[in-house]
Computed example of a mutant assay.
Amino acid sequence: MRFDIISVLPDLLTSPFAHSILLRAQKKGVAEIVVHNLRDYATNKQKSVDDYPYGGGSGMIMSIEPFALCIEKLKSERDYDEVIFMSPDGETLNQTIANQLSTLKNVIILCGHYKGIDQRIRDIFVTREISIGDYVLSGGELPAAVVVDAVVRLIPGVLNDETSALSDSFQGELLDAPNYTRPADWRGHTVPDILLSGHQAKINEWRHDEALKRTQERRPDLLE
């Protein structure tokens, strides 16, 4: 799967994609993550990518031309399944959306900045808008990194144990059950006996019951 991320601050994305699972996925050739500097597509001498808003008001608006040139160049090289704009007023990212995106081949992600972007970018080029929560960040780079991380780990061949992602929280609409590792007794705090029993069917039943209980307590909305 290939991600092309368009950003005015490409260096901000260097670290998230250079470690752990995302780095491993790229080394395996399972995922390709390419970050494009929006200023490379600016058409003025100053390499500026924003301007004052029509109608007045505070803040600056990202211009249509640099985004259009970059997107059109990318589309001339390959077909894209989605052009995603990271926006606080998009649909809220969840595990279902991550699962859907993990089945795609090529995706463009646009990172906004300043007061916003020219609406025509959204009208003409964007096919999907995604938010990571009901709050506003300084730009779309961190949300883009969140989306890529959530999606890449679901691609077959990325995780060492490919069944691991299937038991994560929100898969199956439930939070994950409590997890334990060695030692079995730490300062009098012990692991539930069922997990030490070796009876896999009963362990699975316990995990499901605990996941349901945790979801009812913490996120009852998921059960509606």
Score class of each variant (00 low, 15 high):
M1A: 07
R2D: 13
D4G: 08
I6M: 04
I6Y: 09
T14A: 13
S15G: 12
A18E: 14
S20D: 07
L22F: 12
R24I: 14
A25D: 04
Q26N: 13
V30W: 01
A31K: 05
V35E: 11
V35F: 11
N37P: 06
N37A: 06
L38C: 03
D40N: 14
Q46N: 11
S48L: 07
Y52L: 14
P53W: 00
Y54W: 13
G56R: 04
G57T: 08
G57F: 06
E65G: 02
E82Q: 08
I84M: 04
F85P: 09
F85K: 06
P88M: 11
T96D: 12
T96A: 11
L101M: 07
S102M: 02
T103C: 01
T103G: 00
V107R: 03
V107N: 01
V107W: 00
I109T: 04
K115S: 15
G116N: 05
I117C: 06
R120T: 09
R122E: 14
R122V: 14
D123E: 15
I124E: 10
T127V: 06
R128Y: 03
S131F: 03
V147N: 06
V148L: 04
V151D: 07
V152L: 06
I155A: 00
V158Y: 00
V158M: 00
L159E: 12
D161N: 15
T163V: 03
D168L: 08
S169Q: 13
Q171P: 00
L174D: 08
L174S: 08
L175A: 07
P178R: 03
A184W: 11
G188E: 00
H189I: 15
T190Q: 15
P192L: 08
D193W: 09
D193A: 15
I194K: 06
I194C: 06
Q200F: 15
I203D: 03
E205G: 05
W206C: 02
A211N: 05
A211S: 13
L212E: 07
Q216H: 07
R219W: 03
R219D: 03
L222M: 12
